[in-house]
């Protein structure tokens, strides 16, 4: 790779993962440059979610390492990885259904400001004006400013995902991981989400997106890694990947052939 190492935020270094005898990932190696959006695409069962779980520390890799900003993430707890500056949006929104929308978005800001643990009982949540203002501003950005006091559990699926995104954004993460951010969304919601993600990109946030919706991937990604059978079979810019006969053959063609059976 001809890119300078200084700008590398995330380096997945030759990672393999064996899940109960199944080789879920083999020799995955890629690097994500600061400020770019890197997409990982592939058919179901290609190992996309396993890869994401290895990156965030939910699964330890069998071999290899994940290096974020010069720190090896392997063996760290999910909360430690977040404290280093990695935030994650889940495939099924992970939110606090019993809290209000505003509280949902304020909570991560406390983790950012006060660290992984702090007994903060002398102040009240109401008096934390700075954090509340920021949460309100970010909720405005994602289009939820009218729902501040609503129970998060009562939001629609699309709104929950927008709120979860706001929960990540308030931490100003150096790296944002998105697991199928538009899964289960209508075309309209998908497009608003794409616009929102483009807006974040303008702020220079580094992102890794796992997605199988080609429309989303080609509108957002700077680089794409194509995953199939636990291996990266192609990597490059959207144009390179789109034009690659190998990808057409191995991924699209292969998937279609499988479905035709």
């Amino acid at each position: 790779m001809a890119r300078s190492d200084q700008n590398i935020v995330l380096h997945v270094d030759d990672v393999s993962k064996n899940l109960g005898g199944l080789q879920a990932l083999s020799d995955i190696d890629f690097a994500v440059e600061e400020g770019t959006t890197h997409a990982i695409i592939g058919p179901n069962g290609a190992g996309k979610s396993t890869l994401l779980n290895v990156i965030v520390g939910r699964l330890p890799p069998t071999r290899g390492a994940v290096v974020f900003d010069g720190t090896v993430l392997t063996g760290k707890q999910p909360y430690e990885i977040n404290q280093l500056g990695v935030a994650r949006v889940f495939q099924t929104p992970e939110i606090f259904p019993e809290l209000s929308v505003l509280q949902n978005v304020m909570t991560p800001a406390f983790a950012k400001r006060d660290g992984a643990f702090r007994i903060n009982i002398f102040r009240t949540v109401d008096s934390e004006a700075e954090i509340r203002d920021e949460a309100e501003a970010i909720l405005e950005d994602v289009g939820l400013s009218t729902r501040l006091a609503s129970h998060a559990g009562s939001l629609s699926r699309g709104d929950k995902r927008r709120m979860e995104l706001a929960m990540c954004l308030i931490q100003h993460p150096r790296l944002l991981l998105l697991d199928e951010p538009t899964a289960g969304m209508s075309r309209h919601d998908t497009n608003t989400t794409i616009d929102l993600l483009k807006k974040i990109k303008a702020r220079g946030m580094t992102k890794v997106i796992i997605e199988h919706d080609m429309h989303v991937v080609f509108s957002l990604a700077d680089r794409i890694s194509v995953l199939s059978g636990g291996k990266i079979i192609a990597e490059g810019t959207p144009d390179e990947v789109r034009g690659s006969a190998k990808v057409q053959e191995a991924y699209l063609g292969g998937a279609h052939r499988l479905e035709a059976h």
Partner: peptide, 28 residues
């Protein structure tokens, strides 16, 4: 005081979704 404090909100958030808490950077 505990109920109204950020600490109290963290405890409620742990009750609501412990997974989200860990991925949000809290040692629960």
């Amino acid at each position: 005081k505990i109920f109204a404090s950020p600490f109290g909100m963290m405890l409620r958030a742990i009750k609501s979704n412990q997974t989200r808490m860990t991925y949000t950077g809290f040692n629960t």
